[in-house]
Amino acid sequence: MASLKDIAAKCKVSVATVSKALNDQSDIGKETKENIRKAAEEMGYFPNSAARMLKTKRSNNIGILFIDKMHSGLAHEYFSSVLENLKSEAEKRGYDITFISQNIGQQKVSYLEHCRYRNYDGVVIASVDYTDPMVVELVTSDLPVVTIDHVYNGKTAILSDNVKAVEDLVNYIYQRGHRKIAFIHGEDTSVTQKRLASFYKTCMNLGIKVPKEYVKTSYYHDPKTTGKLTRELLECGDPPTCIMFPDDFSFIGGMNVIDEKGLRIPEDISVAGFDGILLSQVLKPKLTTVKQDSESIGREAAAKLIDWIENPKTSLATQVLIQGKLLEGKTVKMIETN
């Protein structure tokens, strides 16, 4: 790999001039800078990371705190898409991403200690227990932090518009003639709270009464539990005509139970999911769902964090709301209304 000395020899300038040109200092002429940068590119020069860190005080490394309760990891299609787009945007701007854990070799450490050990410039937090004391310790430290789908005071958050997404979905189901709508939601998170509030408010505005037994608590990405709850809904005294599931993957549990009972979708029971993952669009019939814009969420998280890292004096905490899109699918039957 070429060094500054190699580039200096080729361009017949001093090493100091090469260093200044590559760091875009103003006392080097434009033509000289262009010649030096061209030579550096041709020779495959990359700055030494240790030297760069001494100069910029940055490691150009971002930590990702991602803990999926169902232990699906990067098999979780929605979050894997968010993280892949986050990675792509970070790399475009010269940053690497690595995952935060509680282990350094055999030694147990806190999330913040791990960040200090790895010299992370900043952190993106997604899908964790946001009340965990170790998470709170990390958020309240001096490290730049961006959260996904959760808001802390003084921190930037990238948020799916869950309120409007559920409103759009319930309105669509209502327009298809349904008045008995059940909702199996995920565990108690800020996302669930927004979705649940939006569900009740939209139903109220439409004049739909929601029996207590129509609202069930499950977990995200957990087909086993949603299967059990689907059975309860189908076997209650006055079953719903449409069931909303917490996410597209969890719907698989409900689909299996519906099939076991000899029922057909949407002829006998209508269903809707959430997330818009690839699976939802290859099922037959195609699942009615809300597609979250995972690409924009990931890219915005990286961009906002890097802006904060590189311009701390001018950055302000903000909430970025990302809109989803209703995918009509074929799983909500049109029924006659009185």
Rank of each mutant, 00 (worst) to 15 (best):
H185K: 10
S26H: 10
L138T: 04
L83H: 05
P246R: 02
E137T: 09
N153M: 05
S294C: 11
D129Y: 04
D268F: 06
V123Y: 03
A303K: 15
C11Q: 09
K108M: 11
I297V: 13
K325S: 15
E232S: 03
A303D: 11
A8Y: 06
L278H: 09
T217A: 08
M255E: 14
S160E: 14
T56M: 05
F183E: 01
D68M: 02
Y117A: 15
A197E: 11
S270E: 12
P312E: 13
D275W: 01
V18L: 00
R116T: 12
S14G: 13
K164P: 08
K108P: 00
A75N: 09
R93C: 03
E137R: 13
K304G: 02
V210F: 12
L263Y: 09
R58K: 14
T241V: 05
F199T: 04
L326P: 05
S81W: 01
L305E: 06
E167V: 15
T318I: 04
G262R: 07
K284G: 01
N103Y: 09
D149G: 02
Y220E: 06
V135T: 00
S26V: 09
E113A: 11
K69H: 07
P285L: 04
F251I: 01
A16E: 05
L233D: 03
L229I: 01
G273H: 04
V210D: 12
G44N: 10
S81V: 00
K33S: 04
T192V: 09
L65A: 08
K330F: 05
F274W: 09
V136R: 02
K330W: 00
I158L: 09
K164C: 11
T337V: 14
A182V: 09
G177T: 09
V163Q: 13
H185V: 05
H221W: 15
K5M: 09
E235Q: 15
V332N: 14
R37H: 03
I297R: 09
Y220F: 15
V109M: 01
T230C: 03
L278C: 05
E336H: 07
G329H: 11
N61A: 07
Y95G: 13
